[in-house]
Design a binder for these strands. Structure first.
Lengths: 216, 216
DNA sequence: GACCGCGGTGATAACCTCTCACTCAATCTT
DNA sequence: AAGATTGAGTGAGAGGTTATCACCGCGGTC
C-alpha cells in the first residue's frame, strides 16, 4: 500500500471507500466465488444505495479486474519477500502453497477458469513476469548437469522473450516451467477438491512432486 | 447414448427436446463460458418462451450438472476407447490433450474453478473413478525398478481406497497421480491462456513433461 | 459570497431465474 | 367412441441483477 495520507481530503476519502468496497468484495468472493459477486449486495452492506458504487468503479468487470490485479501483486510480493529471505526453490514452493491455501479463491482469481472474452490488462502480465523472474533466479542457482540442452531446451532458448531478458541457461528455463506447471497441477486439483474423498494427504503429494523437481 | 427409439412417443419427444436444450447450452458455454449460460437465451433460440424449459430441467443448476456429467462421461469413454485400442501411458496422455483441446470449456467443466457451495453428485465421482482405473491399468504395466517404495508411496499404499480396489503396486499409484497432476498442470495453464504471449510451443512442454514421466 | 465538483439518491430500463395459474392437445381409460 | 387424465407450452409476475439517468446537496475553491 502506498502512503495512506496523501492528497486532498477528498482523495483520501475516495481511496478509503474504494478500499472498503474491495474489502467487502474479497470477503464475498472468498465465501461464494467470483461469479457470485454482487455490487448491490456490497452497497447494501455498506449502507449505500446501488448506483453509488459506480462513482468508484466503472462496473463489475473493473472491480473484478482490480481484485485480480491485487491478487497478482500479492503473489509477486510474497515471492519477492521469500526470495529476499534467502528461500531456495523448495522454499518458493512452500511459499506458493501457503499463499494458495490461505485464500483459495484468490488463487483461482489468478489461475482459475478464464472468461473467454476477457483479456488481462498489460500490467498484470508484467506483474506475472516479475514472479517468473524470481522463479528463474532460483532455478539458475543449481549448476546444470553435464549433458547438453535437450531439444525442448533448445526450443526454449530460441523462444525466450517470456523470460524478459533473464540470463538463465536453457536448463533453468525448462526447470522454471516445470516448477510452475507441476506445482499448479497439484495445487489447483487440491483446491478444487478433486482429492477430497481420496484419503491420501495432498501435502505429501506436493512434497513428492517437489522432491522429484529438485532431485532431478 | 442408449437406444434412441425407446418408450412412448411422449418420452421420445421429451428426450429429444432435452438433448436439443443441452446442445444449445454446450454451444453457449463453448463461446462464453459456463457462467454466461442463460436459460432464457436458449429458450428464445429454440422458439419457446422461458418457463417452458423448466419442464425439462429443474433449473440452471441441474442443466449445468447434467453437462458436467456428460463431460465426465465423455472423458471416461474416450479414455476407455484409447485403452481398448492398446494405448500406453503416452497414448493416454495424447488422448487427454486432444480431448482437452477439442473443447476447452468442456475441460473446465470437469477440472475448472469449482463453485464453493456446489457438491458433485455421487455418480460423477464414480465416473471419475473409472477414468482413474484406466490410468492405473496403464501405470501398472511397466515393471517397478529395484528400490523399495518411498515414504510417500508407503503412505499411498496405506490410503488406497481412492484406487477402488485396484491391485496396482505403490509405485504405480504414485505414477498415476503424477501423470494426472502434471498433465493437468500443463493443460490447464495452456487452455487458460497463460502461455499465450510467451512464445514457446505448449505442445513441446507437454511432450517434455510426458517424457520425464515415462523415462523416470 | 458565489460557484463548481463530486458523492449520493431514486427512478428506470433491460436483463436474469423461477413460480404460478391457465390453456390446449395428445394420450390413456372405460 | 366418449370421457378423463397427463403433460407441454403460455403469459403474468415476483424478486434479483447490472447499469444509466437526472437530480439534490454538501464541501472546497476562487
Amino acid at each position: 500500500m502506498t502512503q495512506a495520507g496523501t492528497g486532498t481530503p477528498r482523495e483520501r476519502y475516495r481511496a478509503q471507500v474504494r478500499a472498503e468496497i474491495k474489502e467487502h468484495a474479497r470477503e464475498q468472493i472468498a465465501t461464494a466465488g467470483a461469479s457470485a459477486l454482487s455490487l448491490n449486495a456490497i452497497a447494501k452492506r455498506m449502507g449505500m444505495s446501488g448506483p453509488a458504487l459506480y462513482r468508484y468503479f466503472a462496473g463489475r468487470d473493473e472491480l473484478i479486474t482490480e481484485l485480480v490485479r491485487d491478487a497478482y501483486r500479492s503473489l509477486a510480493d510474497t515471492f519477492r519477500a521469500a526470495a529476499g529471505s534467502g528461500a531456495d526453490l523448495a522454499g518458493l514452493a512452500h511459499t506458493m502453497r501457503s499463499w494458495a491455501l490461505a485464500d483459495p479463491q484468490r488463487y483461482f482469481l489468478v489461475f482459475g477458469t478464464p472468461v473467454p472474452g476477457y483479456h488481462a490488462p498489460a500490467d498484470v502480465t508484467q506483474i506475472a513476469a516479475e514472479t517468473m523472474a524470481v522463479i528463474l533466479d532460483a532455478c539458475a542457482g543449481p549448476a546444470d548437469e553435464g549433458g547438453g540442452p535437450t531439444a525442448f531446451e533448445a526450443h526454449l532458448d530460441g523462444h525466450r522473450q517470456w523470460a524478459g531478458g533473464h540470463p538463465a541457461p536453457p536448463a533453468a528455463l525448462h526447470r522454471a516451467l516445470s516448477f510452475w506447471t507441476r506445482l499448479h497441477g497439484v495445487l489447483s486439483l487440491e483446491l478444487a477438491g478433486h482429492f477430497a474423498g481420496m484419503g491420501f494427504d495432498p501435502a505429501l503429494l506436493f512434497a513428492a512432486e517437489l522432491d522429484d523437481l529438485t532431485a532431478h
